[in-house]
Design a protein around this nucleic acid. Structure first.
Lengths: 126, 126
DNA sequence: CAGGCTAGGTTTCCGATAGGAACCAGCAGG
DNA sequence: CCTGCTGGTTCCTATCGGAAACCTAGCCTG
């Protein structure tokens, strides 16, 4: 019995599935985590998140803004200053996100161990 | 104060970051959710997960297997039968995953509402 | 006043990836 | 002999990701 009824984040047409796909993204989780402590500037995110390009950061922030998870504050100063912060809706995500990051902190090494314990390069020839 | 020290899933070189990127993927979350109730066959996953192709499913399953989160059982029958199940390590993920899916179930509509409430097509001309 | 600096963002280009469709293996049944 | 079932792979293309260069707009320096 599979028993996954409608409303489960499985059926492609339900909003929950779209929401999962919104956040289940390489950068989304990390960016939201970065905003979980309060307003952060664009440049700060670039620094603290190692490896993200300006393009992807902007793109990710725009997507989150469009979905109502974060808010953008552009100050009319020179040089420009732009801060991002979680909306109340976005704030409801920090618990799930923190569970993920805690899991990663606790099990990251185990995952890496498994990786080089099974370096069998996909030989499922059965 | 940013205060994100090393060990946070931010610095690109730490295992936690790799672990986050492993699961923060469009299909990974959904597939793991599908396995959270016990062994499931390849074909069942295809059905219950709307929209995934066989290729992406196989690819995702192989990656999870290589990282020690799931185990593969191929029965030498005809027609072939292959079941996937969570390893103990993978089982530690179901709590975080369920928090995500619960969040999605609860807030999916709010996210969609925000989307068509702000159809401003990125006019940040400042 | 020319030129540099700042910070956020966009554009361009190219390699990597996702994803659908078609194909394959291997045996049972009509 | 031909078809179907199931898991998987190959081929091909549309899309995406990432690096680097460029842009805006004012202030600061020489």
């Amino acid at each position: 019995m599979s028993g996954f009824g409608p409303g489960d984040p499985f059926l492609a047409d339900c909003p929950a599935r779209l929401a999962v796909e919104l956040i289940a993204d390489k950068w989304t989780v990390v960016v939201l985590y970065g905003l979980s402590r309060g307003p952060v500037r664009h440049g700060e995110l670039i620094e603290v998140i190692g490896g993200i390009s300006r393009k992807m950061l902007t793109q990710t922030l725009r997507r989150l803004e469009a979905h109502g998870l974060i808010r953008r504050h552009a100050y009319a100063e020179v040089p420009p200053r732009v801060e991002y912060e979680l909306t109340p809706l976005g704030a409801t995500l920090i618990d799930p996100i923190h569970m993920l990051t805690e899991w990663a902190r606790a099990n990251g090494d185990a995952v890496l161990d498994a990786l080089d314990a099974d370096p069998e390069p996909v030989a499922h020839s059965d």
